[in-house]
Design a protein around this nucleic acid. Structure first.
Lengths: 346, 346
DNA sequence: CTGAAAGCGCTTACAG
DNA sequence: CTGAAAGCGCTTACAG
């Protein structure tokens, strides 16, 4: 049962040196004679010695653990992000504890508290709302945090995001270029920075092109297929139905697509559709969704880079704000070149 | 900078009791007078005390950390599984460290070793091959392990899987009932138990229905769209092309679908197609893939239940083998009722 | 119901 | 280049 795991004590005894010398040899500290080091390393290998990181953590106050908190790991978007984080963390000598909040602030808070007890070195938060009191708590307690994907209303913390406002503008310009004039937006929840910024881009583009903002063309809700489906059904049944829908996530766009298919509207001929996120299924030929790239994997890697810089850094109040450029991925659903030529103005 | 985090020492001093009494009060040990407990709990709350789990782990030899190792968290299948594991672990007071191996045994091994150093209480392995030496190492060292999704060739370890052989039989019976006679299988890698069993089911069903096994109708490879696409292109170009393809994963089936679409074969009229896994996109109306349910979320929860039983259990060599029943999810791609009536025998 | 002692496996800080 | 001492924050095991 008790398969006595070897410790540096055993090694020290066998090598006939002190614990300190063993510790130094194992940690590649140069202040050990080469000969002594070799002897110790050999004994360690022979005993199949593995350092006890718990003990190390207790004294060094570092766990090499990073907490990643997302809305839902089943969401393709977060899964890709998580993989980027995992890979970069591994390369940097860290491990990742993942947990999902379902966008519930209560869950977020209790998870953060548990992670603090676990002694994680820092937090990567991918699913904060615009106001998130627990983040301020972390900052006050001087615990490293980086936001990824979504920002706070305030700017007092490091983040890695894409320019969501710009992304929305790209979408709108694409639709307008293809002759759409009655463009609706089906959006997520406006207490998220991503949604707020995409909505802002939508409005700005309308204004810039002299199109009027119609309240019935704006449906806030959540980043789900169900919301996309329900909102689209309603909009497409209006006498003055939109000729294009901007789904603020690919999931929303999929719901819109289903609604349009059921109602007999052809995409893109009867209805132009654009999503956001460039999740994998959007490239499926049967879906063929025009969307906005998010570089999720890279965003994850950058998040780890920033958090490790904070953890290992000397400056106390180092903050790093990275904003990535979005790109429009043009596929069929948003309208094809043919349609552009026969643009109808309504 | 050093925001002195409160410890039981502080509490003990303020409460004017020993460390032990504080420890007991905090851990709900009944051997403390109610009045003393109340006083201690109040002080703890006032100081905003949080236990240091690292210190606790060092002496208790328990970290409440579970390691989950999957092939790739971006794969929808593993993401759903991971979420089930995360939720059940959270309810049971454990946290989950996730890592991805890309099916590389070297990565698996180095990740397992690091997790051991981190002091995880047990392993949930979702992506083992039929032979996986590192698993034997874990068993020998008496470290709790449970396999999920894929099994080893040997039966000396706990697992939670579905009956993949039965699942494949369900698929084949469905296709045969719908009049298909030239059924091909595009499979993953045969050094995985899931693939081996699905292939066995395929062969058994052929034999039982007096259909001959044709080597050119069997394409082993990997669980990817790319493999499905390439293999299907080849098969569908044969003069004696199959009238049905069993894709051993939904990802493979998506690749087949793309190939068929490109070659102008209509599904299910010209080609019946069935997948495996019931990942979310298979229910998309434009995909509408007949597939086999895997109850991934539940499998994850069961995996945690088994591993915690082992961790917290008294019996040293407790093993638990759970085999779940698969179900066929009938959608359009496998052939519809109409076709059944006009069954053609080739 | 309460406490003094010892220790988990390692590292930091100080001496030599 | 090497070591003796002290301690990280908690718990186990033994006394009272």
């Amino acid at each position: 049962m008790k398969n006595k795991v070897p410790t540096i004590k055993e090694i020290a005894k066998i090598a006939n040196v002190s614990l300190m010398t063993v510790s130094r040899a194992l940690n590649n500290n140069p202040r050990v004679r080469e000969q002594t080091r070799k002897k110790i390393l050999n004994i360690a290998k022979e005993l199949n010695y593995r350092p006890n990181r718990i003990a190390r953590s207790l004294v060094s106050k570092r766990s090499n653990l990073i907490s990643l908190i997302v809305a839902d790991i089943r969401n393709q978007f977060f899964a890709e992000l998580a993989r980027g984080i995992e890979d970069k963390a591994w390369e940097s000598g860290y491990n990742v504890i993942i947990s999902s909040t379902d966008n519930d602030p209560k869950r977020l808070e209790s998870q953060v508290r548990l992670m603090m007890e676990m002694g994680v070195d820092g937090f990567i938060l991918a699913s904060v709302r615009l106001k998130e009191p627990i983040v301020d708590t972390l900052i006050q307690q001087n615990i490293p945090v980086v936001l990824v994907n979504r920002k706070l209303a305030s700017e007092n913390v490091s983040y890695v995001v894409i320019d969501n406002h710009r992304g929305a503008c790209l979408v709108m310009e694409h639709l307008i270029n293809h002759g759409c004039r009655n463009i609706a937006i089906i959006n997520g929840s406006t207490d998220l920075s991503t949604c707020a910024e995409r909505l802002r881009g939508y409005k700005k583009a309308l204004a810039e092109h002299g199109l009027t903002l119609r309240p019935e063309y704006v449906a806030n809700g959540s980043f789900t297929k169900e919301h996309g489906y329900t909102a689209a059904k309603k909009m497409l049944s209006m006498p003055d139905r939109p000729d294009a829908i901007f789904g603020a996530s690919d999931l929303i766009a999929l719901g819109v697509m289903k609604a349009a298919d059921e109602l007999g509207f052809r995409i893109p001929d009867d209805l132009s559709l654009v999503g956001f996120d460039d999740t994998e299924f959007s490239s499926n030929p049967r879906i063929d969704l025009t969307t906005v790239s998010q570089r999720k994997y890279e965003m994850g890697r950058l998040g780890v880079q920033v958090i490790t810089e904070i953890i290992e850094g000397t400056e106390a109040n180092y903050t790093n704000r990275i904003v990535l450029e979005p790109h429009l991925i043009v596929r069929n659903s948003g309208g094809c070149e043919m349609r552009k030529s026969c643009a109808h103005s309504t």
